[in-house]
């Protein structure tokens, strides 16, 4: 409880303070975190225009107030099957290296405040390609969340470049 109070206090002190804050979303039973410095906004699911002959996880593009934003499905990116969009499905719009990119996620949870001492390196078990996307493990009370490495998530090292 004490840590929670501390977060509130800091929030009061400086609304622009984004250090150590993470946007959380859940998929199946797993919780993921994105460094909030990348997040520009969260929008509901929109009509996505598919792009022909493009990467499988690239769902297409959307028009957000006149700006064209490419959309990535996190499920496809993690090599999972897609599920039907529902009322909880949303798009997290990220700004990465001057590009706006949207991530489709199943369910946005909340913004967490995690101090560096509560983050540990990911276990070195090379059990799947997905663990490449994990930058660290964050401890929130008794929950364990995976902090995503946005750069690795967005850039497909093997067969796609940010050109």
């Amino acid at each position: 409880m004490k840590t929670n109070n501390k977060v509130k206090f800091e929030e009061y002190e400086d609304e622009n303070l984004i250090d150590f804050r993470y946007m959380g979303f859940s998929q199946d039973s797993e919780d993921y975190l994105i460094d909030i410095k990348y997040v520009t906004e969260i929008i509901g699911i929109q009509n996505i225009t598919p792009l022909p002959n493009s990467k499988s996880f690239l769902k297409g593009i959307i028009n957000l107030r006149g700006i064209i934003i490419p959309i990535i499905s996190t499920r496809l990116r993690f090599g999972k099957d897609e599920i039907d969009f529902n009322a909880r499905t949303c798009i997290i719009v990220l700004n990465f290296e001057e590009n706006n990119i949207g991530l489709i996620v199943d369910n946005v949870t909340e913004v967490y405040h995690i101090l560096p001492e509560n983050i540990s390196l990911p276990p070195d078990t090379n059990k799947g390609t997905n663990s490449n996307f994990i930058k660290g493990i964050g401890q929130i009370e008794n929950k364990v969340c995976m902090i995503l490495d946005i750069e690795k998530l967005l850039i497909d090292k093997e067969n796609m470049s940010l050109n």
Partner: peptide
């Protein structure tokens, strides 16, 4: 004419996109 996004890169057969009357995108 709008560019599709540097992130996507070049798509064969498509030069850009436009916003249609209903707010959707045409390639």
């Amino acid at each position: 004419v709008k560019a599709i996004s540097d992130y996507v890169g070049k798509i064969n057969g498509i030069t850009g996109c436009m916003i249609l009357g209903d707010g959707n995108i045409g390639l």
